[in-house]
Amino acid sequence: METLMAYAIGVLFGCAVYMMLRRSIVKLVIGLIILSNAANLLIFAVSGMTRGAPPLIPEGMQLPEGAIADPLPQALVLTAIVIAFGVLAFSVVLIHRAFEVVETDDLDQMKDTDT
């Protein structure tokens, strides 16, 4: 499964970079979303994917039964999802404000410091 994911993640990264290279600022945001999903999947996939064995400890036990999925990358990805959302919310609002002020959605025109 990890090998398949490698191709999917590659596609996601490619799309993300392509979108971030566009001059339209909305496309930049979409690129950002794809990029964070790609990064999360990357961590998740390379740390090994396990089917149907969540890292939970059953009632009345001290340790989980049998092999379980690695909990540490999951914790990392969880944090990353939330942070990515924070960044996204901030950048979306920032773009909105920037558009109001400079009245263009073209990144190349935004580079002029005079508004």
Binding site: M1, M5, L41, F44, L78
Partner: peptide
């Protein structure tokens, strides 16, 4: 869905 299928319900 991928997260859920591969043992990461919290994610």
């Amino acid at each position: 869905l991928i997260f859920i299928l591969f043992s990461a319900p919290d994610l």
